[in-house]
C-alpha cells in the first residue's frame, strides 16, 4: 500500500483551506500537510481543526520554500508518494488518483497535472496566452517540452522528492522542478487535470505580471549559474 502525503502551501487562505482539506478527506487522503507560509489570518487554526498536520513558517518565505518544507516533512514521515496541491480551491481532489496512478504503476517517478491535456479547464484567454508563452520560454531556456510548465499540481515518488532540490523560494519553483526533472533524467509523465478558475483563485493565483517576474528570475538564475 502506498503512503500518499498531500502537501499544501498556504498563505492567507482562511476562506478556502477548510473546504480544500474536507474535500481531500472525502477522497480518503488523510495525510495532509499544510505549510502555513506566514499567514496573517486563521489559516493555521482552520487547517488544524480540519485535521491537517500544520507546519508553520513564522515569516513568509514564498511558495517554493513552503513546498520544500512540506516535502521534507513528508519524506521524514516515510511517504511513498508526495502530491503538491494548491490551497485556493483551483485543484480537484478527485484528480489526485489520476496524477498518482503512473507512480503507483511504477511507470514514472514524477507526474505532472496538465490543464492543457484536458478540455475541461476554463482557462481565461490572457492566462492561456501567458502559459503558452511560458511554454515557449521553458523550451528555449531549459529544453523542457511539457504542455503545462507552470502547473503546480504534481506527484513525486520519495526517491524523486529526495533528488529534486527546490532552491527557488517563490513561484519559479514550478519551472525549476521541471528543469531538474529533465536534467536529472527522472522519468516523468503528464496527465490531464481540470483546473477551476474562480474569482477567488484568480485573485490568489499568479498574475500575468508575476509571470514576467518569474521569467526574469529564471533567466537570471540560468545566467548566474
Amino acid at each position: 500500500m502506498n503512503k500518499t502525503f498531500i502537501v499544501i502551501p498556504a498563505r492567507n487562505e482562511s476562506s478556502s483551506i477548510t473546504t480544500v482539506i474536507n474535500d481531500l478527506k472525502k477522497h480518503k487522503y488523510d495525510n495532509i500537510i499544510v505549510v502555513d507560509d506566514g499567514s496573517k489570518d486563521t489559516t493555521s487554526i482552520l487547517a488544524k481543526q480540519a485535521g491537517a498536520t500544520v507546519l508553520r513558517h513564522y515569516i513568509n518565505r514564498g511558495q517554493g520554500a513552503a513546498l520544500k518544507t512540506g516535502t521534507e516533512y513528508a519524506v521524514l514521515q516515510e511517504a511513498d508518494i508526495i502530491v503538491h496541491f494548491d490551497a485556493d480551491g483551483q485543484m480537484r481532489a478527485e484528480d489526485i488518483s489520476t496524477v498518482i496512478q503512473p507512480l503507483i504503476e511504477g511507470k514514472a517517478d514524477v507526474s505532472f497535472g496538465s490543464r492543457f491535456l484536458s478540455n475541461d479547464s476554463n482557462i481565461p484567454t490572457a492566462r492561456k496566452m501567458m502559459l503558452v508563452l511560458g511554454r515557449i520560454f521553458m523550451r528555449a531556456l531549459f529544453k523542457v517540452t511539457t504542455t503545462d510548465p507552470q502547473s503546480g499540481f504534481r506527484a513525486l515518488t520519495k526517491k524523486a522528492a529526495q533528488s529534486i532540490e527546490i532552491t527557488q523560494r517563490g513561484m519559479p519553483h514550478c519551472s525549476e522542478i521541471l528543469a531538474q526533472v529533465h536534467k536529472k533524467k527522472i522519468v516523468f509523465t503528464e496527465v490531464p487535470v481540470k483546473i477551476i478558475y474562480t474569482d477567488y483563485s484568480k485573485k490568489h493565483g499568479q498574475s500575468n505580471i508575476e509571470a514576467l517576474r518569474i521569467a526574469t528570475k529564471l533567466l537570471w538564475s540560468k545566467l548566474a549559474r
Binding site: 505549510v35 498536520t53 500544520v54 507546519l55 508553520r56 513558517h57 513564522y58 515569516i59 518565505r61 514564498g62 520554500a65 520544500k68 518544507t69 521534507e72 516533512y73 521524514l76 532552491t167 523560494r169
Partner: peptide
Amino acid sequence: IEQDITELTRKLALETK
C-alpha cells in the same frame, strides 16, 4: 542571507512540529 533565513524558518517549522 535570504537563503539562510529560509533555512532557519524551515528548521523552526520542522522542529516545532
